[in-house]
Amino acid sequence: MADTKSAKRIIFGLFEPQTPLRPILDRLQEMKFSEESIEISSATPILAQPVGVGWKRFRLVHVTIIAGAIGIFFGVLLAGGTALLYPIRTGGKPIVSPSIVGIISYEMMMLFAIVTTFITAVVKVLRSHRVAAEYDPRIDEGFVGISVLSDRGDPRGGPVQDLFQEAGAVEVEVQ
């Protein structure tokens, strides 16, 4: 991350827990930083106002539902398809059973839905990292960090650092 050749930089301010964050965020918005370029790090979810990389346009539950549908299809293939394709004679009795196709499809639906939801969430977590600064261990102790992503030559960089200092940042760092 601390790659000097990168065109982007992250200004990171670490604040004590009692610092009121709302004014800082308001000031950052006045400075025309988009919501996508501001990120708050904390030890627990603090349900801040929507900041961070575009989760607004994307709902995880849709992924779950689509994956579940694919899982049902897979389950039908598994329990129904393999029975239909079975090449060996089984005494002329039907071996495709609707209720079993239901049971296997249910399990496969759940498997696909859960695994896909998990993978999507992990990918999203990994991809959100370009905005935030490196993890500061002090965040675990209750400190709150604000990261601001901007171009390296952005003139607003100085004012942001000043703003953080003014607001009582314990540490201001440029990455």
Partner: peptide, 16 residues
């Protein structure tokens, strides 16, 4: 015995 075999080891032949 036939439907409960998970691998079709127990099954019915066409001649009963």
């Amino acid at each position: 015995c036939e439907p409960v075999c998970p691998v079709y080891a127990s099954y019915h032949t066409p001649d009963g």
